[in-house]
Write a protein that binds this DNA or RNA. Sequence first.
DNA 1: TTGGAAATGATAATCATTTCCATTTTTGTG
DNA 2: CACAAAAATGGAAATGATTATCATTTCCAA
Lengths: 130, 130
Amino acid sequence: MRMSTITQRMNKSDLKLIAVLERTGGFASAQELHQILRREGDGIGLTTVYRALQSLVDDKIVDLLRREDGEAIYRLCGDNHHHHLVCKSCGDTVEIEGGAIEKWAKTMAEEFGFREVGHTAEIFGICSKC
Amino acid sequence: MRMSTITQRMNKSDLKLIAVLERTGGFASAQELHQILRREGDGIGLTTVYRALQSLVDDKIVDLLRREDGEAIYRLCGDNHHHHLVCKSCGDTVEIEGGAIEKWAKTMAEEFGFREVGHTAEIFGICSKC
DNA sequence: TTGGAAATGATAATCATTTCCATTTTTGTG
DNA sequence: CACAAAAATGGAAATGATTATCATTTCCAA
């Protein structure tokens, strides 16, 4: 049995990072992912974390976004594209559907003749608990 | 004659930055804006450039976006709240209306009981010229 | 087993952005 | 004008994420 092209490219570090991203679900920065792995007893180095994330991004296995302060955050790019509602106070995050956004982005891009279109959209506010 | 609230807040550095941003038109990073002013013989300090840009952003006089590498870039913005359609290749930017987004953000936030809600949304792709 | 390629990770280097703080400029008031 | 308080300024150092170096280790095919 032959493995897929993607899997052939994967090394241990890549798989570790994917596992953590699957487990945590949402977005995480390289530093956070490194801390999580360390906390779990994995001696992986920060350099390797950055390298693995970079290659996963190159292979389009994870998405790279930016926090408001410019820090890079990563998430697995599954089939279900969604957005986030983030509490500015406690950091709680809710995943939400963005059907309206998808349509909006597509329409606008077409109107101005853009192709290979992507988009980012986040909502932030203060949640009911805070 | 009484000056507007905004103008009252402006200091020399703010005005210098606005002038450069008007002249250059598009987006520029703090470092670039500093270099431009220096090249023109202005001895303004980098710290002051950052401070002025920060206050202009707070006053909603300039927009703050992020380059792909996370560096902050600034641009004068009009009065009305809008979003951007950015070309990943040449950096060209189109200001677009985001009526659908405003409604979406509001609806979602209400649904989950969030208040003091804001949002970010950008569309990126490759423009017709590239 | 073995030689070379790929992977790893500690350390140092980069680079944008902030913080500190001493100095200068501006401003309001008598 | 003079003078004190407040605001603005900018150089230097600190910070923090990310990248580059490089010596060492792991993998793997022959």
